[in-house]
Design a protein around this nucleic acid. Structure first.
Length: 598
RNA sequence: GGAGCGGUAGUUCAGCCAGGUCAGAACGCCGGCCUGUCAAGCCGGAGGUCGCGGGUUCAAAUCCCGUCCGCUCCGCCA
């Protein structure tokens, strides 16, 4: 048996004009306060909470039902909206001036006792939240997050349609794309032994749509990558993906700025200053040690390499003299022994040998290493860093990458620990990426963006030269000078978007593949279809993709993208709600001709 | 693959770093009282394989080893 009950409106939408009206409302019992003779029920739905009053004197029947209500029962209430008696209004509620006086209460469904309360106060472990996601999503914060996300979808779609974009879906069952991430594979029953790959992004398809003449394409689309998770990485995540024909980086960036600024304006009421600032990849690395800097606080890296080229201190001299780096950040306090030990452990965990430090204390430099420094070095150190009484320098010396990594991580950690101001939004484009980097381990060049990125026109000759020479060192030097026409959008130290002008000439694409060590045969096998498409009148095109989960989390000030995703996975890629992934039925495996190894 | 933090009533945690009334608190839950609360209040009650396995010891939530799970980070990944 069950009752049926139709509602007139949302609880959260009851307002002035409902006063005196008879209304039927439905929702969940948020809280019950039973005073004996009168019961207050906070009735909650998607839009908010309204207080229902069940008085014995008004309706004995309603009162008796209310007396039995428990949290999260689903009920329907019929009654009259009245202004609350003076002095009993609740300013914390949107509907706090009114209440529904219950004449009839119907229990539409009961709820078992809850594994955790549906309120904002109680912190709940991530696993429980995900296991009972439907309860977690009832909580105001999560509900707001998803509603926020939904408003974002609508703004994005409206904006892009307005700009003449065509929304096209691309396949999920597709071929492995060469973007470097591990693919999720789907076995093909009709072709035993063969597999589809789930798309890491619609990159190739959107380029082909350009060739097809859909000169402005967009899609809000899931992308799937089988890599280890982080707070800002899920195995499936959402991109706002777009591509434009006959466009260059300026057009893409300008349009992107318009879109991002619109979202901030409409969703947060924040006006972003346009055009967004641009910072070169090189400058970002030198000043912040990362290609996604958070510039809302200082502690920039200070260059010291040349100063220590001939130092008596070997730890600094060796990297300085042999292509490495010596850099430091200045911390605006005297760090204690304990803090320094803790930071040393931290940088060791990142691969550093240790942590050199110098304090300016009682009018002098104080440090175990300062005895190795010449007067000139000490002077230079103080001059360049502007070191003052009560401050500490932290150093990193070694190969470039490690130095950047260590100081960038220290900088972020110290900002957190020292509670440095990190308010507002720091929005910038990172541009002038090198086209490719030499990967020592793999013994080949890897593209910084992806292999379809157009190199700068004026750098093409360098690329030609690099292809001609057999001397590796020379080749690396040449390639490192080639810049790509790529751009990343960085907000508050997070990469929220990235794109490029694509290669539309098959000959250039072929050369790039060759340089990247992707052989003719492999290129044909993996994405011959793109190369072929480029031969049939491919227009010049460029595009960008935004990590929507990251963007939304960042706008909402959340630490993890899990909080803007309805059903996210744990760090091990498990969905505690459904229990996925799970073993497959032997029958299914047999049909797919798949045998699981021990 | 690696590093760190965490795992104790339904929930959030204390207890662990000096092993021996250490099995506790709050909230929730159950029962009762209560006519204006809004994280209602008051009285009473139930509730725990201390993640799991092994070891040390007269004795382990506590020490050691292994393992699983969650989170953060490195590797990996835009």
């Amino acid at each position: 048996m069950y009752e049926e009950f139709k509602r007139d409106k949302y609880c959260g939408e009851v307002s002035e004009q409902d006063e005196g009206k008879r209304l039927r409302l439905t929702g969940w019992v948020h809280r019950v306060r039973n005073h004996g003779g009168v019961v207050f029920v906070d009735l909650r739905d998607r839009e908010g909470v309204l207080q229902v009053v069940a008085e014995e004197k008004t309706s004995r029947e309603a009162y008796e039902v209310a007396d039995r209500l428990k949290p999260e029962f689903v009920i329907g209430v019929e009654g009259v909206v009245r202004r609350r008696p003076p002095g009993t209004e609740n300013p914390k509620l949107k509907t706090g001036n009114w209440e529904l006086v219950a004449e009839k209460i119907v229990v539409l469904n009961e709820s078992a006792p809850l594994p955790f309360p549906v309120d904002e106060e109680t912190p709940v472990s991530e696993e429980l939240k995900l296991r009972y996601r439907y309860l977690d999503l009832r909580r105001e914060r999560m509900r707001e997050n998803l509603l926020f996300r939904s408003r974002a979808y609508r703004l994005i779609r409206d904006f892009l349609y307005e700009k003449g974009f065509v929304e096209v879906e691309t396949p999920f069952l597709t071929k492995s794309t060469p973007e470097g991430a591990r693919d999720f594979l789907v076995p093909s029953r009709l072709h035993p032994g063969k597999f589809y790959a789930l798309p890491q992004s619609p990159q190739l398809f959107k380029q082909i749509l350009m060739v097809a003449g859909f000169d402005r394409y967009f899609q809000i689309v899931k992308c799937l990558r089988d890599e280890d998770l982080r707070a800002d990485r899920q195995p499936e995540f959402t991109q706002v993906d777009l591509e434009l024909s006959f466009a260059d980086e300026e057009e893409v960036m300008s349009l992107s700025e318009e879109l991002v600024a619109l979202l901030f304006k409409e969703l947060l009421g924040v006006e972003l200053k346009r055009p967004f600032e641009r910072v070169s990849y090189r400058e970002a690395l030198e000043r912040y040690g990362t290609d996604k800097p958070d510039r809302r606080f200082g502690m920039e890296l200070v260059e010291l390499t040349d100063l220590f080229k001939e130092s008596a201190f070997k730890v600094f001299r060796e990297p300085a003299a042999s292509g490495g780096k010596v850099k430091a950040i200045k911390v605006p306090k005297l760090l204690s022994r304990k803090e320094l030990d803790e930071l040393t452990r931290f940088v060791r965990g990142l691969g550093a040998g240790g942590l050199a430090w110098v304090k300016y204390e009682k009018g002098a430099l104080s440090s175990p290493i300062v005895k190795f420094f010449s007067e000139q070095e000490k002077e230079g150190l103080i001059r360049r860093t502007g070191l003052k009484e009560g401050e500490t320098l932290l150093f990193s010396a070694g190969d470039k990458e490690l130095t950047y990594k260590v100081l960038s991580a220290l900088r972020l950690r110290l900002a957190e620990e020292l509670g440095l101001k990190r308010e507002g939004f720091d929005v910038l484009w990172v541009v002038d990426f090198p086209f490719a980097e030499w990967d020592e381990e793999e013994g080949r060049f890897t593209p910084l963006h992806h292999p379809f990125t157009m190199p700068r026109k004026e750098d093409l000759p360098l690329l030609e030269e690099a292809l001609k020479t057999d001397r590796l060192e020379e080749k690396i030097a040449l390639v490192e000078r080639v810049r790509s026409r790529a751009y990343d959008l960085v907000i508050n130290g997070e990469e929220v978007g990235g794109g490029s002008v694509r290669i539309h000439k098959p000959e250039i694409q072929q050369k790039v593949f060759k340089l990247l060590g992707i052989g003719e045969v492999e290129a044909q096998e993996k994405f011959g279809f793109l190369l072929e498409a480029l031969r049939y009148g491919a227009p010049p095109h460029a595009g960008i993709a935004f990590g929507l989960d990251r963007l939304l989390a960042l706008m909402l000030g959340l630490d993890s993208i899990r909080d803007v995703i309805a059903f996210p996975k744990t760090q091990k890629g498990v969905c505690p709600l459904t229990g996925a992934p799970d073993f497959a039925d032997p029958k299914q495996l047999k049909e797919l001709k798949i045998k699981v190894l021990e």
